[in-house]
Design a protein around this nucleic acid. Sequence first.
DNA 1: CTAGGTGCAAAAGGTTTGCGGTTAA
DNA 2: TTAACCGCAAACCTTTTGCACCTAG
Lengths: 150, 150
Amino acid sequence: MKVSRQDHYTDTIRGGVLRDTPQRRHVYDLLRDEHSHPTATEVFLRAKKGMPSISLATVYNTLETLVACGLVKQVHVDREPTRFCPNLEEHGHFVCEHCSRVFDIDLAAERSQQWSLPAGFTITHHEISLRGICADCAKSEIQNPKSEIR
Amino acid sequence: MKVSRQDHYTDTIRGGVLRDTPQRRHVYDLLRDEHSHPTATEVFLRAKKGMPSISLATVYNTLETLVACGLVKQVHVDREPTRFCPNLEEHGHFVCEHCSRVFDIDLAAERSQQWSLPAGFTITHHEISLRGICADCAKSEIQNPKSEIR
DNA sequence: CTAGGTGCAAAAGGTTTGCGGTTAA
DNA sequence: TTAACCGCAAACCTTTTGCACCTAG
């Protein structure tokens, strides 16, 4: 059964005290179609294309709101700027050290809660981030082995 | 067989072009005995007790050097200040959302490389961070269930 | 109408950098 | 001797905040 693109947003926003503003809808729509894990600044730059008056502060505020609502997730890569991800499934991330792209990684469901914690500890969230070389970069490295000289 | 506390430091520092300065040794010694995952500022404050003239910039530079040498590891918790960890074994971290302490978590060796990556991807590092409630806080919460009102 | 949201600019906070003087090897 | 390092202060960059105006409901 097909679900309208904005149902989740509409349900969540209208369900609370939050207002359905053009800025929020615009940022959410943008992010929902995005698989590149943009930073707040990148979201801002893209948002301005369709809404030139939007401010960076509003983008930050909106992203914070969407995260608080559970409509998008944050991705942290070391101390780099926070990235945002519309994939609400349980997953981890892989960062390519060559091209800097971030990929979603499925976490086998059966593994997700199998951390060997000391007794009495309770997990509420987890964040798994892997670093390495992605398939594309590994391939081009074979064809062009000196491409990383710096 | 017993190994002197500073062999790893001495071998690593003397093995390269790096100088064995009092500041580096002081910061390393401090960190080596530390299980609390201090931030750079916390390292700085503790370092000043034994070496009042040391500067924050030197602490940052030293920590960067020690990380580059593999003598300490960085721990990233969302966008909070970077923490530093002398535990070189493969492990993850658990952050208590109540007391903010960071705990080392053993990663079962057999699990460490079992991520289901797309073909062609190669992992060089991984960082596993869990959040939740530690045993101490869970216990005091039972005895004092209203303690989290804010 | 009005509480919540927006845009702007300034501030905050962690980290990095430039530079002149210092020091380990 | 000299390249690496130190301490200081300024710069950087992401993110947050204060405030006057605006607007969805």
